[in-house]
């Protein structure tokens, strides 16, 4: 089912909401970094996941949402249900 709105109409509708969300994201990164001046987060994988997700948002892909989901997903092992 194709969308019924043009890209311009979608942007008009979403611009302020996206602007607000990206500001919220930027402020959240700032807040974490401000509180972590001596690098306590060190080995925590979550900041890295968030930054990789941010890279995907900035990419030109058409499947950004799916790719962001995969960053936050545990790996699957094919054949897990087959006897050794």
């Amino acid at each position: 089912m194709a969308g019924a709105m043009t890209a311009n109409e979608i942007l008009d509708r979403l611009f302020l909401e996206m602007r607000a969300r990206i500001l919220e994201l930027a402020a959240s990164f700032d807040r974490i970094d401000r509180a972590d001046s001596d690098d306590h987060l060190g080995e925590d994988p979550r900041p890295s996941q968030l930054r990789r997700a941010n890279d995907i948002v900035n990419s030109g892909r058409y499947d950004r949402a799916e790719q962001v989901q995969m960053i936050f997903s545990d790996p699957y092992q094919a054949g897990w249900n087959r006897p050794d």
């Binding site: 936050f72 699957y76 897990w80 249900n81």
Partner: peptide, 18 residues
Amino acid sequence: HLEDKYKGTRMIVDMLLE
């Protein structure tokens, strides 16, 4: 939920197909 969803969904589909 969350990080378990992709792996779990694939496992579920595997079990249904078997």
